[in-house]
Amino acid sequence: MALIEIEDLEVTFGSGGRVVQALRNVSLSVCEEESFGIVGESGSGKSTVLRALCGLAPVTGGRMRIAGKAVPSPRDPEFYRRVQMVFQDPYASLHPRHTIDRVLSEPLAIHGFDRREQRVEQALDEVGLGAGFRFRYPHQLSGGQRQRVAIARALILEPSVILLDEPTSALDASIQAEVLNLLDRLRAERGLTYVLVSHDLAVVSHMCDRLVVMQSGEVVEHLTREALKDHVTKNDYTSNLLTASEGFTRDPAPQR
């Protein structure tokens, strides 16, 4: 059974004269313990799908269900315990004046969890940072370490769904590999469901079993990892993306 179902989702920003329709008729479903990818370029609305699911974007139409139940609006605490998100920019997603300890204990305090001390230390251990990082400030950490903290924060409420919004695009290639491996391991250990948004086809095909390609607010193609590997695509835009992601080719490619 599908864990997350999104049907005909529409998101519209602005009001009055300047209206931008960021999403049109987006439908997708994500199974339990699956890793699902959304690929697209800037302005395709790929991040907006995640934000709409979390209640951070104005939904103007369509239905969203999690485990068969409509997503409540405004979101209730139960939703936040089930669904968490990791943001793109590790430099912007941690409060600059809060220690890592505070970043991790605050969600526990909000939801009234017990054994907070142990949970914080355990979360740091799980993302490979260790308790030595607990009382540092974000500016004392590197980008990769910050993203690990962001992942620890998402995990600390023990959710079943993690939304990953370009989790590695701000990181160096070697750090990206470490973070992707970490995400892979955590999913295997905890049976998590991922929805991963990225502009990088290689990252999505590495992480996800199924994916959709988005362009200007619409889903243009549903694909599986195997189809992507064999370049089996019906859509021009997808094949363009595929060619582009393989680097520069000197011989002039066919002009669009």
């Binding site: 951070l56 979101r75 968490q84 997603s93 941690l94 409060h95 605050e106 939801h111 409420l157």
Partner: peptide
């Protein structure tokens, strides 16, 4: 509109 405010909102903070 900073991401860290979105993040704490998603933790269910009032």
């Amino acid at each position: 509109n900073a991401e860290h405010i979105d993040a704490i909102r998603l933790q269910g903070a009032s």
